Computed example of a mutant assay.
Amino acid sequence: MKTELRVAAYAVCVRDGEILLARWVDREGRKRWTLPGGGMDHGEEPVATVVREVEEETGYVTEPTVLLGIDSIRRNWLRRLAGPGDWQGLRILYEARIVGGTLRNETGGSTDLAAWHPLDSVTSLDRVELVDIGVQLWRDRPPLGRSRLTDPANG
């Protein structure tokens, strides 16, 4: 079985009761809101990754201020030629503040829209689970940076 690891960094940007989200478009064309961020390039530092990805997806320049936590997910997949696989995503989540730039949408990337959303309306959005994990880490600030939403001990 083929194994694959993807490391990514994401930002939780909250100001005036709103959170910055990017709308992700998956391979089937479904659109769901996610935290701005994405995959780390080989040799890149995680902080540089989150700054680069947020600017690509939203137009904003950010400054990460706090490491909120690290989340890990696993998925099994079946690719036509590659056979079965075991994919793991390691997601590093930072709190970040906006220090420059102007809100805009990404073109030619994995997201098509960037917008601020009231925190109290996030649960009504069509979103990926990473949004809930990020909001929970931002609110709770767990000492080990582990989300109670994905902690096996809370299962």
Rank of each mutant, 00 (worst) to 15 (best):
I70T: 14
R80S: 06
R52F: 07
G134I: 04
P143G: 04
L78A: 13
D71P: 06
G89E: 12
S147P: 06
V12N: 00
R30V: 07
I133S: 02
L130A: 05
A8M: 15
V54I: 12
E106W: 02
N76K: 00
E106V: 03
D112E: 08
L90H: 02
R23F: 09
T123E: 07
G37L: 08
E95D: 08
G108P: 01
V50N: 01
T123C: 15
A114G: 15
E45K: 14
T111K: 05
G145K: 03
L125R: 15
G134S: 07
R141V: 05
G43C: 03
R139T: 14
D151W: 08
V50D: 01
R148E: 06
R27V: 10
R148M: 08
A82K: 11
A8T: 04
I73Y: 05
S147Q: 14
P118E: 10
Q88A: 07
D132A: 14
R74M: 11
A115Q: 07
R74V: 06
W33L: 14
K2S: 04
I133P: 03
V14Y: 02
H117T: 09
T3S: 01
A114P: 13
K2D: 02
L103N: 13
L103G: 08
I19G: 02
G155E: 08
V12Y: 00
I92G: 02
P36D: 06
G39V: 12
V25K: 08
E106Y: 07
W116F: 09
R30P: 15
E129L: 05
G109W: 11
E55W: 14
P46T: 05
T123G: 09
T65S: 02
K31A: 10
D86S: 04
Q88E: 09
V66T: 10
V66L: 09
N154G: 02
D41H: 09
L81Q: 11
G109T: 09
D140I: 04
T65I: 02
S110L: 04
G155A: 15
A96Y: 02
D112T: 12
P84H: 01
L130E: 06
G85T: 00
A96Q: 06
L149Y: 13
D26G: 09
R75G: 01
R15F: 03
L149Q: 15
G145V: 13
G89C: 08
V122N: 04
R91L: 15
P64Y: 13
R80V: 14
P64N: 08
L137V: 07
Y94L: 07
V12G: 01
